[in-house]
């Protein structure tokens, strides 16, 4: 087990190097860098006397973002800048060389709770709804209700997140029924309300975003569990359980435990799904989370922020993959761990 963990950790590091290097090189290919964008913005605001002032500002900005060397003013080779980024990343100094690291981290830590909450609630909802549906359909595979549910899930799988979000917004929000707010996390002036009212208000704002976040994972979980439970229910093991005269409730519980074990392997694909979902959801519902931060960073060519976000999501995904393998092993002793 320890050997497996160490091996796994080593591979995790190798993969992380790969992910960050690919991203770094890709970001380097951008035709317009962040300094030029920012200078163009300031020029448009009338902050520069003439164009040479702008060019000087571009050079300064490039130095501060670590795009060019401070002394020679020449762009350093990619691998050199990548190793410097790595060195800085090792000490969690993820902003550019002369950029305020604390402010950079504040942006991330302010956005993180929103995304975590959305992701957590979305996953929770998906599990609470998906697991019972999947389990029930799997144990009654082939019945008319199973086919009905499966068809429903099939349709739901065909609706992309952004479509789901616009549909819900149109029907339940601004468009027609007006039951739910169309964005944000709290109503205007809610800070003067009683605590209970504030909590209700918060939850009320979360209903639609969480539902959209949950829609993808829900379908995945329910269909995966249905297939896996149906497969177990068709084995001699299941027939044996019933033949022994074990109570139906107990037998079903055992089938579920058997068929649910592979569910642990889904964690690796659920996490990227949630990250993608958060980009769409946070943009459509105007929530200030990581997805929104990523969207803005991409628009502003904020290389440091994109790198930081890619680093976080890939660390989270890789950890989720390892944990899901471990979980699978814990639930199902027949599974062998492979690095």
């Amino acid at each position: 087990m320890l050997r497996w963990l160490l091996l796994r950790f080593a591979w995790l590091l190798v993969t992380l190097f790969g992910v960050t290097f690919v991203t770094f090189v890709m970001l380097d290919q951008a035709p317009v860098d962040r300094a030029q964008l920012e200078a163009a913005q300031r020029l448009a605001d009338g902050n520069f006397a003439d164009l040479s002032a702008r060019d000087q500002a571009i050079v300064k900005l490039r130095v501060s973002y670590g795009l060019i060397d401070a002394e020679t003013l020449q762009p350093a080779p990619v691998w050199q800048r990548y190793t410097r980024w790595l060195r800085n990343a090792a000490t969690l100094h993820l902003a550019g060389p002369e950029v305020d690291n604390a402010a950079f981290w504040r942006r991330i830590t302010e956005a993180l709770p929103v995304s975590m909450l959305l992701g957590f609630l979305g996953l929770l909802f998906a599990l609470l709804v998906g697991v019972p549906i999947g389990a029930w359909c799997g144990m009654n595979a082939g019945s008319r209700r199973d086919r009905g549910f499966s068809q429903g899930l099939f349709v739901l799988a065909g609706v992309p997140e952004f479509l789901m979000a616009t549909m819900l917004l149109l029907v339940f929000s601004a468009g027609w029924l007006g039951w739910f707010p169309s964005g944000g996390l709290r109503s205007d002036g809610s800070e003067h309300w009683a605590v209970f009212a504030q909590i209700v208000d918060f939850g009320w704002h979360l209903v639609l975003p969480v539902f959209v976040m949950a829609s993808g994972p829900l379908v995945l979980i329910a269909r995966f569990l249905r297939d896996s439970v149906a497969r177990v229910a068709a084995t001699p093991f299941a027939a044996n359980l019933y033949a022994f005269g074990i109570e139906t409730e107990v037998a079903r519980w055992r089938l579920l435990r058997n068929g649910g074990a592979p569910l642990a392997t889904l964690a690796g694909s659920l996490l990227p799904m949630l990250v993608g979902g958060s980009i769409v959801v946070e943009n459509l519902f105007s929530l200030d989370g990581l997805g929104h931060l990523a969207f803005r960073a991409v628009h502003e060519q904020d290389q440091a922020m994109v790198m930081a976000l890619v680093l976080f999501t890939s660390v989270a995904t890789l950890l989720a993959l390892s944990v899901s393998d471990l979980l699978h092993r814990l639930v199902d002793p027949r599974v062998r761990l492979q690095a």
Partner: peptide, 12 residues
Amino acid sequence: LCFPILLFLLFA
């Protein structure tokens, strides 16, 4: 596999 598809497409 680590890249969330949408994030990757966004910056690409």
